[in-house]
Design a protein around this nucleic acid. Structure first.
Lengths: 203, 203, 203, 203
DNA sequence: TATGAATGAGTTTTCATTCAT
DNA sequence: CATGAATGAAAACTCATTCAT
């Protein structure tokens, strides 16, 4: 009797449209009008499915996190050693290749900068970053252990790895000549390996 | 008998006001009216001295570059070896201490993200980044040479150093719990040193 | 075999929901969507049973009139003299006690002000008021006759009684500190009695 | 050098325009657009002088209070006895005659009903009512004393007088056939006098 | 130079109403 | 009867920019 709900699909469409508009036009131009046009929907309908613009942004942050996670888990399936698992992670987030998603990267950069001062966004962004941090740290600890090193260094190393990746996104998006996208992953991996090789052996 | 022009001071005041508003309220809220209020001037006067809002942003990018340069040169005076000069650079851009300027850092992050798609900003931002890149590369080459290493690695290393710094700014601004401001400089320096120690010796 | 129509109950539910929303949130917020939520129905269904929003308002005016009338007739059953009947009327509309309905009072005030310029509402409101006026006048005439007074004064007195009651509603709803709800009825009755006692005796 | 401020005049123009629109079209239709058109200004300019729509409403409440007060003080000048002063008050607020302002009355009714649920308006309205109440009470006390009566009754009488006047506004605005504007003042005065004549003499 | 009023296009959001299911 | 998605017009409000003074 009742009409079937399509809210989930619509929300996904709208979030995806915002992703594209953000990536292509920046935050300032990511108006509800622009998102609606991109999604081929009406502005009114956008607000039927999302109470406010920032609610869409929140949904997008979740969505991007999911995209990155899913890529990571796909690559993880083939990884056997801690080193390979670490590589999977870096590739998932930085490398070109199957499933790469430059729009997601660009959007992530923009969200990161919106997080600087928009409180709600900041909370969601910081939560996502904290999760990444934890994951990186675990992967690094496993990698250090594999080499028979102290794992205490994992914390500081995780911070610099995360910073390198976020910075690579940023530079790749806004100053590609300095940081061609294809360099990022290999540079980050090289850095990690050198860091690790120099750690002290565990007793 | 004509009144002395105060355009230069006014432009500086306006640029400084935009810096503060950007850092405190984000790009979206950095309206001409907000900048005018912060500078204790009127909107009309802003447009008397700057043709458009984005012209202020351009001036701000120049201004920030100048701030960073000046800090670097101050520290450079005391540096004697290539290693110390490298340290001066990293400290100038990341470290706490005399002349540190967290507002400038926050503003820089925001500008970086605006650069993602606002063409005019992108050009100015990319130019500033290219300049930094060149400088880092030179400092790294000198450091590698000092250790008797091949200098070919300087290019890739410079990229990862720049990315780490930009990423550290970003994380420190938007997710401080993961990247406390005081960690950034020491982490970046440690990374550089390990990278360098592992380079092959020059023939 | 066709399903039994529930239109009447549904219309009553919707009208009652609008009453509550009006009383609790004011006219501006009495949106179809808010009414639907309050009635635990859907916006579409509201429009199935009522052609337009103002049609609900019309139904509500009728409904409120019916509520007041029904209270009056309940009290009337116990009244024996003209004075008691008058008292019944005032109590029915103003007093606290069994069946009192503060939401109905608040809604009535809001409708009254909407009647100021919304033509359709004005017609319905004015009709309801005219009916009340006639009733008050009759009750007053009987009361005057009971005291052996000229009944000519009933008209003017009815006007002031009606005004006092409408004004009491208004003040009780919007400035309760000046006109506590419990004062209204006794004040109005006292006023009526003094008015009457001073009328000239009929020849 | 600087341009002369016309903010005060503009605010008065805008407030007056809102008064007219409220009186002529009701609250729902008193949009910023409508006010702007009535004032022959642009919507943007309205918001330049008033931060929000409700700020205009607040200014209007103040303005109406001032209008009523000024009328009262004009009439007061000619009044010599407490009875005449009371009459001045009632005439000022209800009567036809020099300076009468039916639009102000209609607007006041609408504001009163908006006060039912809009918190900010309620505060301002209740304050205005409280002030009126105090004034009426004083006038009544003087009148009672003049007749050698107990003044204790002034409080209750003031409430019913205020209610009668607010109710008369309401009925005159929305159901004029029942309460022609010219009746209100004489009815209210008659009521007051009868009330007073029946009070007990002071010891 | 400086002021601040004024503009107009644009923004997010709301909502009565319609309609496919 | 009932649902809930969809529409479109209109609402309040913002803001870069212009301009008379």
């Amino acid at each position: 009797m009742s009409r079937k709900s399509n809210t989930l699909e619509r929300r996904a469409e709208i979030t995806a449209a915002m992703l594209r508009v953000l990536a292509e036009q920046g935050y300032e131009r990511a108006t509800i009008q622009a998102i609606a046009k991109e999604a081929q929907l009406t502005p009114g309908l956008i607000h039927y499915h999302f109470k406010s613009k920032s609610e869409i942004l929140m949904a997008l942050i979740e969505g991007l996190t999911a995209i990155f996670e899913s890529r990571f888990h796909t690559l993880l399936a083939k990884a056997k050693t801690p080193k390979e698992r670490l590589q999977s992670y870096v590739d998932a987030r930085l490398a070109k290749g199957d499933g790469e998603n430059p729009e997601a990267v660009a959007a992530w950069v923009i969200i990161g900068s919106e997080a600087v001062k928009q409180a709600e966004v900041q909370v969601a962004y910081a939560a996502a970053i904290a999760k990444e941090f934890k994951l990186i740290k675990q992967l690094l600890e496993a990698r250090l252990a594999e080499e028979g090193k102290h794992t205490a260094a994992a914390h500081g190393l995780a911070a610099i790895v995360l910073a390198s990746m976020e910075g690579s996104f940023q530079l790749a998006s806004a100053a590609e000549s300095v940081m061609p996208k294809r360099y990022a992953a290999s540079n980050v991996m090289k850095m990690i390996e050198r860091f690790i090789l120099h750690e002290e052996d565990a007793a």
